[in-house]
Simulated scan of single mutants.
Amino acid sequence: MAAATLTMRIDSDLKRDASAVAEYYGFDLSGVTRAFYKQMVRDHAIPLDLGYSNEVPNEETIAAMKEAEEIIAKGGTGRSFKSAEGMMAFIESEADE
C-alpha cells in the first residue's frame, strides 16, 4: 500500500478542540481521519449525521408523557420501586389480574 499525504486547511481553534477530543479517546487527528475514511469505504456512506431530527412522538408516547406530567403535578403520587426486579414483579402481577 502506497502512502499518500493529505493536506487541508482548518481553523486553528477547530484543530485544537478536535485534537483535544481525539486525545481524550487516545487518538491523534491523523488516526481519527484514517478511521473516518476507513469507515466511509467500509460502509459506502459518509459517517456523519447530516439530518435534522424533528421526530414527533407517537400517540402512545404522548399519552405516557401526559400521564407522567399528571403524576408529577399531583406530587408524585405514582408507585415507586426500590429495584427493577420489584417493578417487573408488580407489572407482571397487574397483568395477571
Rank of each mutant, 00 (worst) to 15 (best):
M1D: 10
M1S: 10
M1A: 09
M1T: 06
A3P: 10
A3Q: 11
A3C: 02
A4P: 12
A4D: 08
T5Y: 10
T5A: 11
L6S: 00
T7M: 05
T7Q: 02
T7G: 05
M8Y: 10
M8Q: 02
M8H: 10
M8V: 14
M8C: 13
I10H: 00
D11N: 15
D11L: 10
L14R: 13
K15W: 01
K15M: 05
R16A: 15
R16Q: 12
R16C: 03
R16P: 00
D17N: 14
D17I: 12
A18E: 02
A18V: 05
A20L: 13
A20E: 04
V21D: 04
A22P: 07
A22H: 02
A22D: 08
E23I: 07
Y24E: 04
Y25I: 09
Y25Q: 10
G26F: 08
F27N: 06
D28K: 09
D28C: 11
L29D: 03
L29W: 01
L29V: 13
S30A: 07
G31E: 14
V32R: 00
T33K: 00
T33C: 11
Y37R: 14
K38L: 14
Q39M: 15
M40R: 14
V41W: 11
R42Y: 12
R42C: 03
R42S: 12
R42K: 14
H44F: 09
H44W: 11
H44A: 15
P47W: 13
D49Q: 14
D49M: 07
D49N: 09
L50A: 02
L50W: 05
L50M: 10
L50I: 11
S53A: 06
V56Y: 12
P57L: 05
P57V: 05
N58L: 03
N58Y: 08
E60S: 15
T61F: 05
T61I: 06
T61E: 13
I62F: 02
I62A: 06
A63E: 15
A64F: 06
A64H: 11
A64I: 06
M65T: 14
K66Y: 02
E67M: 11
A68F: 03
A68M: 15
A68S: 12
E69S: 13
E69C: 03
E70R: 06
I71D: 03
I71H: 06
I72N: 10
K74F: 12
K74Q: 14
G76W: 07
T77W: 08
T77E: 13
G78T: 03
R79V: 01
R79E: 14
R79S: 06
S80H: 07
S80N: 04
S80V: 03
S80F: 11
K82L: 01
K82E: 09
K82V: 02
K82N: 09
A84F: 07
M88D: 14
A89K: 10
F90H: 01
I91F: 07
I91V: 10
I91G: 03
E92Q: 08
E92K: 04
S93K: 04
S93R: 15
E94K: 06
A95P: 01
A95L: 13
D96A: 02
